[in-house]
Design a protein around this nucleic acid. Structure first.
Length: 269
DNA sequence: ATCCCGCTCA
DNA sequence: TGAGCCGGAT
């Protein structure tokens, strides 16, 4: 076990990528990077992360940003709700200060078990495993207990980064480079990893037929200061608007809707 | 054309 | 427990 840990840490020191958020212990910067990378490939995030921190350098700055500005800066980074929860989490922190444990961080909006553990270990040195799908897969293939049991004493932050990198660069979901893997000598699956193919079954639904597509059209129109799209079936539009209101992106004002904190209001037809 | 991260809510 | 979320990667 100890040898496995040493080999993985040595591999990480050699092969791990030098990403900007690994050079900070600022919990805000780390939270931004974690929320961004929950849904987008790490390499794509680097410029977005740097631009975000330049625009909103602190949790207090982001806490005061408008919905329209946050959504505009988030375009291309995935789920809009995450961006707003990130801002809402910063509003809580601006008022109450940072929770310094994973359990406390977990109470912030948009912060679940993984993100709480990541921020707690990277920013506050808590000795807790940050278990994302990469880590879950790596631990499962090695076949050595739960991810928490693998954390070397006193070294959770580096270990978390190392195991996530291992999953991202070597022990991939659809590509396992066992001959290049530092854990191979201790791995129960070395050389015999079953790689699941990307599915080629079932008739997919056209994206234009999904609620997500309608939501995207609505958010794009309102952030651009336009009215609601007129070429969408009113029933589908209503469904999407209901969801966006429920998720806190929009608010209703009589028969109109607007961005949650924006100018009133586009007509609901 | 299908898949997917981590989180929330039903 | 599982559906939904956003949009780029494969």
């Amino acid at each position: 076990m100890r040898e496995l840990q040493g080999a993985v840490l040595a591999w990480y020191a050699e092969a791990g990528r030098d990403l900007p958020w690994r050079r900070t212990t600022d919990p805000y910067a780390i939270l931004v990077s974690e929320v961004m990378s929950q849904q987008t490939q790490v390499a794509r995030i680097v410029p977005r992360y740097e631009a975000w921190l330049e625009r909103w350098p602190t949790e207090d700055a982001l806490a005061q940003a408008s919905v329209a500005d946050v959504l505009g800066a988030w375009v291309g980074l995935g789920y809009n709700s995450r961006a707003l929860r990130l801002r809402d989490a910063c509003a809580v922190v601006a008022r109450d200060g940072w929770p310094r444990t994973a359990a406390g961080l977990r109470a912030l909006p948009g912060v679940g078990p993984y993100t709480a553990a990541a921020v707690a270990s990277f920013a506050f040195g808590e000795q807790v495993a940050a278990v994302d799908t990469n880590v879950r897969r790596v631990a499962g293939r090695i076949g050595l207990g739960t991810p928490d049991e693998l954390v070397p004493a006193g070294d959770a932050a580096t270990w978390n980064q190392a195991t996530m990198e291992l999953g991202a660069l070597v022990c991939g979901a659809r590509r396992a480079a066992c001959d290049a893997c530092p854990a191979a000598p201790w791995c129960g699956s070395a050389g015999q990893v079953v790689v699941t193919a990307r599915g080629a079954r079932g008739a997919g639904v056209r994206f234009e037929d999904t609620n997500r597509w309608v939501r995207g059209r609505v958010v794009a129109a309102l952030t651009a200061g336009e009215d609601l799209p007129k070429d969408i079936d009113p029933e589908r539009l209503a469904t999407a608007v209901d969801g966006l209101v429920r998720d806190g992106l929009l608010r209703r004002e009589g028969s109109t809707v607007a961005l949650a904190d924006g100018e009133p209001g586009a007509v609901v037809r």
